[in-house]
Amino acid sequence: SGVNQQQLQQLMDMGFTREHAMEALLNTSTMEQATEYLLTHP
């Protein structure tokens, strides 16, 4: 699906929903950016 499943699982383990985590990974290129994205786009 174009996203790193390991990163997706890590974000879900942090408490984010699958949909939200996927959106973040699709819009960013690193785990750090994805986390930042999730925190700034709740």
Rank of each mutant, 00 (worst) to 15 (best):
T30A: 02
A24L: 01
Q6Y: 10
G15W: 01
L26M: 12
S29T: 12
Q10A: 10
L11M: 04
L25N: 00
M22L: 13
V3E: 05
M31P: 03
L26P: 00
Q6N: 11
Q5A: 13
P42V: 15
Q6C: 11
L26Y: 06
G2K: 13
M22Y: 10
L26I: 11
F16D: 01
A34R: 00
M31Q: 03
E32A: 09
L25D: 00
N27M: 12
S1I: 13
Q6R: 10
E19H: 13
Q6A: 11
Q5I: 13
T35G: 04
Q33Y: 03
T17C: 15
E23N: 07
E23S: 06
L38M: 04
L25Y: 04
V3P: 08
R18Q: 09
Y37S: 09
L8S: 01
L39E: 15
Q10H: 08
T28Y: 06
Q7F: 14
L39P: 12
V3I: 13
Q33K: 06
T40S: 12
M31N: 02
E19Q: 10
L25S: 02
E19Y: 12
M31W: 12
E23T: 09
H20A: 13
L38V: 04
Q7C: 11
H41P: 04
Q10W: 08
L11H: 01
H20K: 11
Q7D: 13
Y37I: 14
T35W: 15
T35S: 05
M14E: 04
R18A: 09
G15S: 03
N4A: 08
Q5N: 11
T28W: 04
A34I: 02
S29H: 11
M12A: 04
E36P: 06
L39T: 14
Q5D: 10
T17W: 07
Y37H: 14
Y37C: 15
G15Y: 02
G2Y: 10
H41L: 14
P42T: 15
G15L: 02
T40L: 08
H41R: 05
S29V: 08
A34K: 01
L26D: 05
M22N: 05
Q9E: 11
Q7L: 11
Q6M: 12
N4W: 08
